[in-house]
Amino acid sequence: MLHLMSILLLLWKLKKSKSCVGISCRMQECYAIVFCLRYLDLFYQFISVYNTAMKVVFISSTFYLIFLMRFQPPVSATYDRTADSFPYEQYLLGPAAVLGFISAEEWSIPEIFWTASIWLESVSILPQLILLQQLREVENLTAEFVATMGAYRFFYILNWIYRYFAEGYVNWIGWLGGIVQTGLYVDFFYYYAMSKWYGQKLVLP
């Protein structure tokens, strides 16, 4: 729900402020790739209505966000591709593909794609964090958006702890990816929490 909330928060921000300054479209592009790699099973296996519905919502909303930021005025007029410049193609996609192949539990296409999507998701926030570091001042809706983006994976970790003790569930790849993903947020969370605690604007060093 936190993940869904972060997407809805971003959609609301884009509609309300008609601007995507401070928002990284490259991060959304990484998430679109993550979802496409991971949700291929939409076409050949059914787990639950919830599972299928959320996959469709995540894929369609992410592509819609990219469409808004890249091609739909007035939002796209405020998108600066030279500022949002983290070259994820070679820095993130390459390593995720290699790691996905090496660490897959079995060498089948769905499993390799799923594993690569876990690694890619764990670092997909980098373009967004790097963009915010350049801008330093973080507009408050953006801060909320990034905070929920960081919080959702932490709640997965809590669920994984429950599932490990309740049903012996083991997911090494997911656990490691989730720890990396949450770890990348820790310093942002610190400045976000401080800005909330002291009621000041969020300014990154």
């Binding site: 291929l40 995540f58 089948s108 769905p110 499993e111 794609f113």
Partner: peptide, 10 residues
């Protein structure tokens, strides 16, 4: 080549 990948999480 196409089996596997059963994961029940989003």
């Amino acid at each position: 080549l196409w089996e596997g990948g059963e994961h029940d999480e989003l």
